[in-house]
Simulated scan of single mutants.
Amino acid sequence: MLTCLILDDYQNAALGFADWSRLADRVAVSVLRERIADRDDLVARIGHAEILVAMRERTPFPADLLARLPRLKLLVTSGPRNAAIDVAAAGARGITVSGTDSSPSPPTELTWALILALARHLAAEGAALRANGPWQSTVGTDLAGATLGLLGLGKIGARVAGIGQAFGMRVVAWSPNLTDARAAEIGVERAASKEALCEAADVLSLHLVLGARSRGILGEAEFGRMKPGALLINTSRAGLVDQAALVRALEAGRIAGAGLDVFEAEPLPADSPFRRLPNVLATPHLGYVSRDNYRTYFTQAVEDIEAWLAGAPIRVLG
């Protein structure tokens, strides 16, 4: 009997979104709900397992950790890629890494939840209403006629663009590889440069893959070009933004606010300024957390394990 551990199941949801009983005669499946930050503690808790199921990047698997897991043979990650797993190091150790599909709809929807909540001050107004505070203390920002700037126009960015157009917004996009043909296909304008995008946007939303070229793509200079009333939305990856520069921009009022779903350290440390800044609406990395996505993740995780047991792994990364 092999051992399979499902990691970082914060909501205790994994077992309810797939039929794990399909593995019962070959694999003993159990769940770890809490994130284990200490490396030695992590190895002690998971080192006996031949199969691990990881939820996105919640627990990274660099080469030095993989070297301490000699029993590990299959690592399944939710989603079709995972930058927190050293896939090459896993392959060198004979560890198969398989992924799953992931829908662009949930992060698109959360992006718009953050935009709308910031534009209409929903968190502050809702809290005031519950506390019997002032009745109407803010004035909302109109989206119709405003400019939505998209840094990235892939699957999610394109969907965000369509919703912006439905609100009557002008939509402008830029990325290092964006072509006029792609912009025309989606029906948006292509900004001449990153700087031009920052200057034009009333709402600037990030939808890039984090990599060497995109890390820190927004920093002090870019915030200096943005409108004082602009909103920044990041449901992609925290590393796209210079976090210290963002805090300074928010503290100084150089931009009006930020809706953030991703952070350099997760869970977000208790002393993070993003917990206290009044012009920040922060959510705990909920972009991909939806019923349909979880059903896909865990159903396909079971399929990945079955295929690996049969000697024909599927959805292999790398």
Rank of each mutant, 00 (worst) to 15 (best):
V139M: 13
G140H: 09
T141Q: 14
T141D: 03
D142G: 09
L143S: 04
A144G: 11
G149H: 05
L151N: 06
G152R: 01
G154L: 03
K155S: 14
K155L: 13
I156Y: 00
G157I: 11
A158L: 07
V160F: 04
A161N: 04
G162T: 10
I163C: 12
I163Q: 13
A166Q: 09
F167M: 13
G168E: 12
M169A: 11
V171K: 05
V172C: 13
A173P: 07
P176Q: 11
N177F: 10
L178N: 01
D180V: 14
R182E: 10
R182L: 12
A183S: 02
A184K: 11
E185W: 04
I186Q: 00
G187F: 04
E189T: 11
R190V: 08
R190K: 15
A191L: 10
A192L: 09
S193I: 12
A196S: 13
L197S: 03
E199M: 11
A200G: 08
V203F: 04
V203C: 09
L204H: 05
S205M: 02
L206C: 07
A212S: 14
R213N: 15
R213H: 14
R213M: 09
S214H: 04
R215F: 03
R215S: 14
R215W: 03
R215V: 12
I217M: 14
I217F: 00
L218G: 03
G219I: 08
E220C: 08
E220Q: 13
A221R: 15
E222F: 06
F223G: 06
M226N: 03
K227H: 05
P228T: 09
L231G: 00
L231C: 01
L232P: 00
T235A: 12
R237H: 01
R237T: 01
A238I: 08
G239E: 03
